[in-house]
Structure formats: structure tokens, C-alpha cells
Amino acid sequence: MLKLRAILILSIYAVLVTLASVWMAKQSYAWFPPEASAESKLLDDLFSLFTGLGTFIYLGVIGPFLYSLVFHRAAKYDLSDGPPIEGNKWLEIIWTAVPLVLVLTLSFVSYRTYDKMAVRGPMELVHLHLPNVVPAAYAEPFDSTPQQEIQQALETAPVEQIDVLAKQWAWVFHYPEADVTSTELHLPVDRRVKFSLRSQDVLHGFYIPAFRLKQDVVPNHAIDLELTPIKTGTYRLRDSMFSGTYFAANQADVVVQPYADYQQWLTTAATQAPTPAYNQAAYEYSRTGDRRTGNTKPKVAVRGWDTIPPAPPPMVNYAPKHEVNSPPA
């Protein structure tokens, strides 16, 4: 009778936990910025799977844990010990084997997602590609759409090539075909884009949260990164690898626009003569003046130490309009 009740309670709890996990997995999509690239959809699906399983494990552990804390308390003057149970071989084997299988499965699913993203990344030559292990025909239904989008983008048009130069503390984008430079990243929607990332000084991180992609930029190396924007709009590019004093200000806008607009922008920009762009780091640095003479009026409460001077503002064909009164963060 008691056993039956335990089984019943456990089953009900399992169902509840499953429902909660599914709910969390669905919720997880709302925790991200908009899905602006095909790769972001792949990532969000994977993250949702992890969230669901993670919730299941968390509640699966915490439930019995809390139950025990509530119902297995010692009475006030009860000085006796609990039952001398030292272990259970089968239980221990199960809770070693199940996590093992689980994490191997998660690794495998992650690998497949990574493979579908095909972001290339560094050292393309040794890019792990195991066509035998993952036959092309085998594709799970839950993430087939983004992959089709990537395929479509690849087949319909040539890959857009864009050179990215990171420095302390600015991003400069160069479009080799139109020979245009800009401090704002413009991308055509639904086209595969290939970045060639280079750094002039230190490590930087090329990170666009709306695309869910990130790649460190290493001096002396040109690193390739491919992605497929699928949603028009303005997003943020952030430096993700700490790069020194004005690291936090090293950001740029990313504008994803229809191909026609993108072409229009390129041709207009090509006619502009290069001018120095607004640069947050250079602007702040110029305001601090020479610290040693003390004739400074920093807008912060606590003054700082010497810093590496920022590179001069980049000379570009196109720079976004900037109002001095409200500098971007």
C-alpha cells in the first residue's frame, strides 16, 4: 500500500516536472535578442533543449531534496540516528550511467548544431567535418528550417566578403568589391556573409548577440567567420574579449537591410570622401587631457590612471550620424 502510494506520488511528480521542463524550454526563446541570423535559430533550438533537460534535472534533484528537508526532520528531542544505509550498488550504477549517456547525447546534439552552423571559424583546413558520422539525409525536424535558409542563401547568391579590422578602440569595416570603408556594419539580408577578421593591436572579440555568434580576433591572423542574416533591423556589435581601457565603448551598429538598399548604400558610400568618424574612446580620451598636470575635468567621481592612447578616429567613407550630446554608451 505504502509502495503504491510512493509510486503514485513519484509518477505525478515526474509528470509535473516534465510539464515544467517543457514550459521552460518554450520560455527560453524569450530570453534572447531577436533571431537575426539563421544560425541564431539553430542555437536557440539547442539552448531550448538544454533548458528543458536542465530544468528536468534540476527539479528532479531539488524535489526529493526539499521533500527530505520537509519530512525527514528530527523531532526536537529525538537524539536517535537514521537508518545505517551506506549505499546501494544499483542506484549508484544508474546515477553514473544515466548522466554519462545524457552528456554524451548532449555533446552529439551540440556537435550536429555546430556542424550545421558551419561558421568555419579559424583554421578552416582542420575544420572537423565527419560526413560519415552524420549522413546528410539525417536531419531532425526541429531545426531543418534554418539549415534550409543557410543552404538557400548559399545557392542563390555569391557569398558577400567583408573585411573587419578591430583596434583599440574602433571597428572598421571594409567592403572590398565596392572599396568602401565604414564604422557601421551594413549587411544584406538572406545572403551568406563571410567576414575576414583582423586585429591591429590586441585580442578583440567580434560579437553580435542577435546573431549568437562570436569569434575572437587575433593579431597577425586573418580569421574567417561565416553567417547568414535573415532579419532586417539594427543590432549591436560588441567587443567581447577584454581589450583595455575603453573596451566597453568599443561597439558598433549592425544594419541588416534588403539587398537593394544594401547596394544603394554601398554605391552612395563609395562616392563619399573618407572623413574621420566619431570615436567614443578618442572622444573620452581627449576630455581627460593630461592627467599629470591636473587641469582636467573628468565627468567621473574617481579619476583614473594612465592609459594606452586610443588609435586616432578611423578615416572612413561612411560613418553613422552622431549627436555629441548623447554619446552612445
Binding site: V103, L106, S110, Y111, M117, S240
Partner: peptide, 22 residues
Amino acid sequence: VFAGITGIFLGSVPIDIHVNNT
């Protein structure tokens, strides 16, 4: 338990590529 689960998230390459250094 919570930290361990987010740790598994971070171990997955695609997820880590998004959240690494955040």
C-alpha cells in the same frame, strides 16, 4: 546543482560561442 547545469550549457560549443565572455 544550478551552477553545474549552467556549466553543462557552457560546455556545449554552440551555446558557449554565444555566451562566452558574457
